[in-house]
Nucleic acid binder design. Structure first.
Lengths: 187, 187
DNA sequence: CCGTGCCTACCTATCGATAGGTAGATAACT
DNA sequence: AGTTATCTACCTATCGATAGGTAGGCACGG
């Protein structure tokens, strides 16, 4: 069962960060959730920063594995994009939680350096993916314009999530995404 | 000098929240910034929640006073909208800080109820303003569609801010807003 | 097949720092 | 004298982190 506890710790930590932020994350609370003592968490993650960075990295890796699978499948643009958006929607559906990235970006000023690096990596990976996913639909845009567009789409989705959370209403996310689409800004 | 300290406390608190979040806000740190003792803050704001709520309310009031003045002035749509966006940009320009609303929305799960109420009020006020500001340019949209559009524009701006902050690069905000405009999503 | 040594994965107990909050004295102004 | 605004001094709760210990498993030489 080795490696199991480490993953369980990360599961609990991720849930807390998504619900209440990195600053609200405490070793004692994780310990209670996992069923071990807080000191034991330091065995797996020497510092809180190490835990945060590992959390963000696994989050990015998992998301990108799924997103890349969407590129491999033979899907039309709309379906592929809808599944991408659904990932961000799912966080809200899970008890008004937010994407780990969004939470950490908001708390950026309080993050240790190596956590920041992993946070940056998530947005870069998403923009890279969106360039690939949206590219074929925008033959009119050059590389730079396409990249800017991808960044803007990512930002708009994060914003929809942020505002929906601030209202505690997932319907706000849906109507916002729908409004983006109605304006022709997204597929 | 009455009322002065109260405002000074709020100024310091706002700066900290915008930089590092509501959870990172501590009475001792505010006290040091202001030049009084932490106990004295409780005289003006009995609890941290009271301070947070007052902070959010003043933030909304100040912003709306300025935004409404933009409606009173005889400005064309683009100029008015550009000045609106500039307010959100200014937070980033001020040492990579974020709009108070964005930070608090991200920490929603940890906010006392009366703080949440004030956070909700900010987004509602902004959507209301955007409906008025964008309305004339969208005679094609009915009331509901216009409201959804206003909400989406607000969310997109907040998202641009969030992502720019996560990169620690105000240029990301500018290119994102430019991409929104290039896509015809904003004036 | 048995002991020695090392490793993993936890434990208890405690550290200093800091959190929000309170009681009561004090000084100044009205 | 009463109100306002601030102070000193303290409380309890919790934070991340560390020290030191231990039970169980695996590897290896004799």
């Amino acid at each position: 069962m080795t490696g199991d506890t480490r993953q369980t710790i990360m599961d609990a930590a991720r849930a807390t960060v998504q619900a209440r932020g990195y600053n609200a994350l405490s070793f004692r609370e994780i310990a209670k959730d996992v069923g071990i003592k807080s000191a034991s968490i330091h065995y797996h993650f020497p510092t809180k920063g190490d835990l945060g960075a590992a959390l963000a990295k696994r989050y990015t890796d998992d998301a990108m594995a799924y997103f890349d699978s969407l590129l491999d499948q033979d899907l039309d643009l709309e379906t592929r994009f809808a599944r991408y958006v659904a990932v961000f929607r799912a966080a809200l559906a899970n008890d008004n939680r937010m994407c780990l990235y969004g939470v950490m970006a908001a708390e950026y000023g309080d993050l240790p350096d190596h956590v920041r690096t992993e946070v940056d990596a998530f947005s870069a990976a998403n923009v890279g993916w969106l360039v690939k996913a949206l590219g074929p639909a925008h033959p009119d845009l050059d590389d730079t314009a396409l990249r800017d567009r991808a960044l803007a789409v990512f930002a708009a989705i994060e914003g929809a999530q942020l505002v929906a959370r601030g209202r505690g209403d997932i319907g706000v996310f849906d109507t916002t995404i729908a409004a983006y689409r109605a304006a022709g800004f997204m597929p």
